[in-house]
Design a protein around this nucleic acid. Structure first.
Length: 205
DNA sequence: TAGTAACC
DNA sequence: CGCG
């Protein structure tokens, strides 16, 4: 069977960041995590832990827990402090690829160990969908899956590698997407392995 | 339903 | 065992 078409507005920019740029960005992420420690997010209502560990930078961060559900908030749920600033390199990437006049408000940092996955979902907790979601991959490769704007629509899968960028704009802004698996040992960027995904978002128009 | 698991 |  031939593959399905990718959704309109979906852009895949392989090897967008070279190795030195990836290394510099990892240092920025380490600083973010030092100020805003990774935590285990919980599913709404059930409290089931997700397999990724998570933190944010920016004026707003995406969080989820049993009681409050999916939301954006100004402070780290464990420390109560404001999120650290989005690193300058990421602000520049957003300028270069988003086509949106205002800077990102949120940068979600997801850390995947070798067993972590992310089920098919939509990013729809923002108050505007006018801006794209820009995603940066660092570390081990993953199997990424993207479908349409309806839950049951056909999906396509492909590998994302360290330094790749994905832009979910246009119709693809509300496409279901997820991470089916990590391929451990496929990158030397992170000493202890794993994958980091950074997603830049605009929450308000 | 941003989770998990069984099944083909 | 990997993928859908």
């Amino acid at each position: 069977m031939a593959g399905h078409d990718l959704p309109e507005g979906f852009r895949y920019l392989p090897a967008y960041l070279d190795r030195p740029a990836q290394e510099a960005l990892v240092e920025d992420v380490r600083a973010v995590v030092a100020a805003a420690p990774l935590y285990v997010p919980q599913m709404p209502k059930t409290g089931k832990p997700m397999s990724v560990r998570m933190t944010n930078c920016g004026s707003l961060g995406w969080v989820t827990d049993r009681e409050g559900g999916y939301r954006y908030q100004e402070r780290h749920p464990a420390t109560g402090r404001p999120w650290p600033a989005i690193p300058a390199v990421l602000l520049q990437i957003w300028k270069d690829v988003s086509g949106y006049p205002a800077p990102p408000q949120a940068c979600l940092v997801n850390f995947y160990d070798g067993d972590a996955r992310m089920g098919l979902h939509q990013d729809r907790d923002e108050r505007t969908f006018a801006a794209p979601v820009v995603s940066v991959s660092l570390g081990d490769q993953c199997l990424f899956r993207i479908g349409g704007t309806a839950r049951g629509a056909p999906t396509r899968s492909f590998r994302l590698s360290s330094g790749d960028l994905v832009v979910l704009g246009g119709e693809s802004r509300l496409s279901f997407h997820g991470v089916d698996r990590i391929f451990p040992g496929t990158s030397t960027l992170l000493r202890n392995g794993g994958r980091i995904n950074l997603t830049l978002r605009r929450v308000d128009s």
